[in-house]
Amino acid sequence: MGKVYFIGAGPGDPELITVKGQRIISEAALILYAGSLVPEAVLEKASENARIENSASMSLAETNALLTEYAQAGNTVARVHTGDPALYGAVQEQAELLAQAGIEYEIIPGVTSACAAAAASGSSFTVPGGTQTLILTRMAGRTPVPEEESIKVLAAHKTAMAVYLSASRPEDLRAELLAGGLDPETKVVLGYRIGWPEEKSVVTTIENMAVETVKHGFNRQTVFLILPKEVAAASKLYDSGFTHMFRDASENKE
Rank of each mutant, 00 (worst) to 15 (best):
A232H: 12
V203Y: 06
H244I: 09
A179M: 06
E44A: 15
V38T: 09
G83H: 07
T186V: 06
G181I: 07
Y33D: 05
V80G: 05
L178N: 00
E207R: 09
I107D: 08
G83L: 04
Y88M: 01
E251T: 14
M1E: 13
E254W: 10
H81F: 05
T137S: 13
I194F: 07
S240V: 13
I24F: 00
P228V: 12
A117H: 00
I31P: 01
A90L: 09
Y88I: 07
T222A: 02
T143M: 11
W196R: 11
A71S: 07
L136G: 05
A249L: 06
G2I: 08
T186Y: 01
D183E: 10
E149G: 09
L97D: 14
K152C: 13
T133L: 11
S55R: 01
T222G: 00
V214T: 14
L165F: 01
K229V: 12
S113V: 05
R247H: 15
T82P: 00
L87I: 15
S168M: 11
I226D: 08
A78T: 04
M209A: 10
M209G: 02
R174E: 14
P11H: 05
A95T: 10
Y192A: 08
A28W: 04
I103V: 12
E176W: 03
A179P: 06
T213Y: 04
G217I: 02
P144I: 08
M209V: 07
S47V: 00
L43P: 04
S240E: 15
W196T: 13
Q221Y: 09
A140P: 00
A41S: 09
E69S: 14
L32I: 09
A29M: 04
E212F: 07
R142M: 14
Y88E: 08
I135W: 08
E149A: 13
L165Q: 04
T63H: 03
P39F: 02
I206C: 05
A56L: 10
T76Q: 06
M161I: 10
S168L: 11
P197S: 08
T213I: 00
T68W: 02
E185Y: 06
A140F: 00
Q132T: 15
V188A: 05
T126N: 02
L177H: 01
G21I: 03
A61S: 11
E171T: 13
S113I: 05
V189P: 04
K236F: 14
H81G: 07
V211D: 15
A210K: 02
T126F: 03
R174M: 12
L173G: 01
G2V: 01
I103L: 01
I25Q: 07
E53S: 10
T159C: 10
M209W: 07
Y164F: 09
L43F: 02
V127Q: 08
R193C: 01
L190Q: 05
T204Q: 02
I206E: 03
G122W: 07
L30K: 08
E27H: 06
E40P: 07
V145N: 00
G89C: 08
F6T: 14
E171P: 02
D248P: 05
T186S: 04
V19P: 11
P146D: 12
Y238C: 11
G12F: 01
S121Q: 04
P144M: 03
L227K: 03
S166Q: 07
N219V: 14
Y33R: 03
A140R: 00
E104D: 15
